[in-house]
Design a protein around this nucleic acid. Structure first.
Length: 440
RNA sequence: GUGGGUGUAGCUCAGUCGGUAGAGCACUGGUUUGUGGUACCAGAAGUCGCGGGUUCAAGCCCCGUCACCCACCCCA
């Protein structure tokens, strides 16, 4: 009985042709993180379930992959990289610098129902600053995120910036005080970008016992959007009075502008964020192209000053941002912005006949020593077949060492893209091949 | 968890009024054996997701089921 080859729902194989652009993205991201002064950290995929539960809210808890291991321990796959970081900080406080700037690039798992741009296993790229409460840390993290997008060549992206304190002020302004009502109201508000003002109004109408006039006051405030982020904040302040959250947002905007990131950020009071642990600034990044605008956020995060304290006696402030690599890649692919990379080697060494195997291996070794990505024909047979194979997989140069060539101490170097070929002495082989490759 | 859509060759899909299977790409071989891309010829490849029902006859109609996709919810 044959075993049917298949993958779990929401889990995917990444084939070589897809790995190349993915690796390139990862390399860029890691470089940008390092350039912004973040150091790498890694943690286990599996945690004690109690570490993770209760940190993300009810919705999050439902999406945790959890099970009992062989020793009957309750364990869970990490749901994000933030809670594991909080655990690490609480556990290794003495061994870590403060403030801690770490980046973490790793897979996370969520038992979500898969859909477009949503997977059960996906890679997150996080930077966080632990141990600093001020606006500089917020701005550093956001600045790094914006730099990453720029370095990846993502143009149509916008960070929607908000603050939990601003949301609270909005809710009290609207007269919504009871926690359950606040939760529902926030949930309604969060849908703004999808259903618009009428939709949010409809959602608000569903909440029991909402004070009369609350929806109007809330919606009026939410529509306070001016031409510039700064003007939006001014308008909100005029409506709500003095709110420390507004001052904080103003500072962050100024700091980002000083870093050259003035564009790319907007104030959006409808950003709510479902994750429970956020306490200060919060943000989501959306792609502006309509084709992928509904794919959801590609880079989000915020300040979480009370999460680490849940693991110990010490309250440690932190702020971070998380880029969803797989979703971003999927979106860029849909927009046709991912180059279909040729896969594999640049040079292909043919094997003339059984006696020529030794020559092929020797030639390949020379090229590899010179840094040329080289493949030896592992399926022998007619030369024509081998050339065809070399061409199919996008090799740029083919090498032939026939009996005559060997006697003459030469190698045939063929430029597959132009069709030209010539014989070179063995000693000049690497130079000749590099020459062709350099012609692009 | 709720709603919608789709399941036919490795991939993308066509398949009319029900009459038991097709294309393109990919793959293999060939067009006289030291040369690929283009062209031409040939070949291999399908329990039509699975189970049941209606019918002389089902890829097509009906019921069930599973899987995948999309949307809601939530999120990266």
């Amino acid at each position: 009985m044959a075993i049917q080859p298949r993958t779990l729902k929401g889990f995917r194989d990444t084939l070589p042709q897809d790995m190349k652009p993915r690796r390139a993205m990862l390399q860029t991201i890691e470089g940008t993180f390092a350039r912004h002064g973040f150091a790498p950290l890694d943690t286990p995929a599996l945690e004690y379930a109690e570490i993770l539960t209760g940190k993300y809210g009810d919705e999050g808890d439902k999406l945790l992959y959890r099970f009992a291991d062989h020793g009957e321990r309750q364990v869970a796959l990490r749901y994000d990289l933030t809670v594991p970081l909080a655990r690490v900080v609480a556990q290794h406080r003495g061994a870590l610098p403060s403030p801690l700037r770490r980046y973490h690039i790793a897979s996370v798992w969520r038992a979500d129902k898969p859909q477009r741009g949503r997977f059960r296993e996906f890679m997150q790229c996080d930077v966080d600053i632990v141990g600093a409460t001020g606006p500089l840390a917020d701005a550093e993290v956001l600045s790094t995120g914006l730099s990453v997008l720029a370095d990846l060549g993502v143009t149509g992206a916008c960070i929607h910036l908000n603050h939990r304190g601003l949301l609270s002020a909005l809710l009290s302004h609207a007269g919504i005080a009871e926690p359950r009502m606040q939760l529902h109201a926030l949930r309604a508000v969060d849908k703004w970008d999808k259903v618009g003002e009428p939709g949010v109004r409809r959602e608000l109408a569903k909440i029991d016992d909402l004070p009369a006039g609350a929806p109007d006051r809330l919606l009026q405030a939410l529509e306070t959007v001016a031409d510039t982020p700064e003007a939006t904040l001014d308008a909100l302040e005029a409506l709500l009075g003095e709110v420390t959250a507004i001052d904080r947002l103003r500072e962050v905007l100024a700091l980002l502008a000083a870093a050259g990131h003035a564009g790319g950020v907007t104030i959006d009071p409808t950003i709510a964020r479902g994750l429970d642990y956020y306490t200060g600034v919060i943000y989501e990044t959306r792609l502006t192209d309509a084709k992928v605008a509904n794919m959801g956020a590609v880079m989000s995060g915020g300040r979480y000053d009370e999460l680490i304290g849940m693991f110990g006696k010490e309250q440690v402030p932190a702020v971070g941002i998380s880029l969803g690599l797989d979703r971003l890649l999927a979106a860029l692919r849909e927009l046709g912005l991912v180059a279909e990379a040729s896969q594999g080697a640049d040079a292909f060494v043919t094997v003339f006949n059984a006696a020529g195997r030794l020559d092929a291996m020797a030639v390949a070794a020379e090229l590899r020593a010179a840094g040329v990505a080289t493949e030896v024909a592992t399926l022998e047979g007619k030369l024509g077949k081998q050339f065809k194979r070399a061409d199919r997989r996008g090799c740029k140069v083919a090498l032939v060492v026939g009996p005559d060539d060997r006697d003459a101490g030469q190698v045939v170097v063929k430029d597959l893209r132009r069709g030209a070929q010539h014989k070179v002495a063995r000693g000049e082989l690497a130079a000749a091949v590099s020459d062709i490759l350099r012609q692009g």
